[in-house]
Nucleic acid binder design. Sequence first.
DNA 1: GACTCAACCTGAGGGTCCCTCAGGTTAGTG
DNA 2: CACTAACCTGAGGGACCCTCAGGTTGAGTC
Lengths: 196, 196
Amino acid sequence: MDDRPYIARRPKRADGRRNYDAILAAARKAFETSGADASLEDIASQAGVAIGTLYRHFPTRASLVEAATRDGLENLVAHAERLAGHPDPLEALKEWMREAVIHFSTFRGLVGILAQSMYDEGTPSHAMCAAMHQSGADLLRAAQAAGRVRPDLTPEELFDLLSGAAWVREQAASGRDGSPRFLQLVLEGIVAPRRD
Amino acid sequence: MDDRPYIARRPKRADGRRNYDAILAAARKAFETSGADASLEDIASQAGVAIGTLYRHFPTRASLVEAATRDGLENLVAHAERLAGHPDPLEALKEWMREAVIHFSTFRGLVGILAQSMYDEGTPSHAMCAAMHQSGADLLRAAQAAGRVRPDLTPEELFDLLSGAAWVREQAASGRDGSPRFLQLVLEGIVAPRRD
DNA sequence: GACTCAACCTGAGGGTCCCTCAGGTTAGTG
DNA sequence: CACTAACCTGAGGGACCCTCAGGTTGAGTC
């Protein structure tokens, strides 16, 4: 009947809100150190709460991930709006992409979830991803209109490049990090070819 | 004492070889449909063998993955050697990269394992990855020597690009597949800039 | 302050998967 | 045919997942 994705809402009762916040804090910490497949039972016990309580507030792992990353992605969208008026649309796009890659690789496994959510409605993070898609597409279009980015690049391709860069960054989290270089190469690859 | 990675060897006794092969065949099928984290117990039962037998031949999941993908990666290295004499070194590099991306994304989760193995000795797939690294580096160097690829690109960066492309391909396995386009963009991005 | 009840919490428990290991079986050799 | 190293089995303990029956409590109402 109602197959909309479950988006965790901050509950109404005081004890509910307390636990919700504690779980979220524990989850952020656990995701950071163990990746998106951190043990939910560990998170619950770290939050000082029984496992059933965690499931009450966050019925799926995806809904917990969504709640844990919502702020960061909201900031990303907000930043895109600020950048919309930038005098140099290519520079604006580049800066946004750099920031996006960092957010996408906040913890191991996140970029996979986001890539999944991007085109799969019925996923908790889909709404946020759609908003980001919009932001990225706008910045891209502006840079293309100014003739600064190859005109055949689509927003979907842009996000593939972004996701790839974020994945490389997340892989390299421990050790050699080639991701700034990766994005650099990608960026240099998508600028409009100079006129002959 | 001996912390070399465990590489599965084809066993000596006839029953051992039979089971080894059956497990490998079942594993290939399971990885293909369920990804690298397919259930080992399913694989064992699919092979008509008890779980202990699977662990006897393949003490770790990584060793099973290594055995299941060894052939494909060996082919990739062999292909590189054949391409070494290609008249157009850029075309040779491109073709090899296209093939590499396909092999890296044989099943979901493989490219992550390979990226891990690339710089982590003590991993079953490390030997194969090192060989591939060599192959790729040779083709890259040749294309650079011919002035066809930007000279500042390192082999490590090449493999980051390849892995990123493979990851995007593996993500999109079900549905929209942007991977040929991804690699295309990358390839166009790394060619040497035309002289002014 | 007592009452009410929806919201909330708990943790036992059944399911899946991981990996180990003690004990039984068998292929191949002399 | 006897011997043994190689091989096989599957029970079992541990981690994690997720559900649900039953108990507790915050907050509104009188």
